[in-house]
């Protein structure tokens, strides 16, 4: 007589949560391809490359652009979704490189994406609310 738990057939298959992570990864992939080059080129590298002046990136203009309601789209498209995109690839990369696999690695990867996304949204919301 066997009482091994693994031998009892599962009546309902466990639903995978992969579609959620893959959708976020895929949406992030579109954003990385469409938005990231523009922001990297003009904002992060704009001054060193001579494409924009420091005057063009002045505090008043950037504050008005970023903390505008449409700036939330930038936070989502250039930070939140790319974070889920990156952590999805790192999660699978850790498995591919045989560095880590299983629950803990998955929790750490997607957990850090959630944490950093929350930080970005919180930074944006506190200033946006304060400036009305």
């Amino acid at each position: 007589m066997r009482t091994n738990k693994q031998d009892t057939p599962q009546t309902t298959p466990r639903r995978s949560d992969e579609p959620i992570w893959w959708s976020l990864f895929s949406a992030g992939g579109v954003c990385v391809a469409m938005l990231v080059p523009a922001i990297a080129l003009l904002v992060l590298l704009g001054i060193p490359l001579g494409l924009v002046s420091a005057e063009q990136l002045n505090y008043q203009r950037l504050q008005a652009l970023v903390f505008h309601p449409l700036g939330l789209g930038v936070v989502l498209g250039a930070m939140v979704l790319p974070l889920f995109h990156a952590m999805h690839r790192i999660h699978h990369g850790l498995h591919d490189l045989k560095l880590a696999h299983g629950r803990l690695a998955k929790w750490l990867c997607y957990g850090s994406a959630v944490l950093l996304s929350s930080l970005a949204l919180w930074l944006w919301l506190t200033v946006s609310m304060a400036s009305g």
Partner: peptide, 12 residues
Amino acid sequence: VVPLLFFVASLL
């Protein structure tokens, strides 16, 4: 995605 993480950190 490794340099992408630096990009997101820069934006943060």
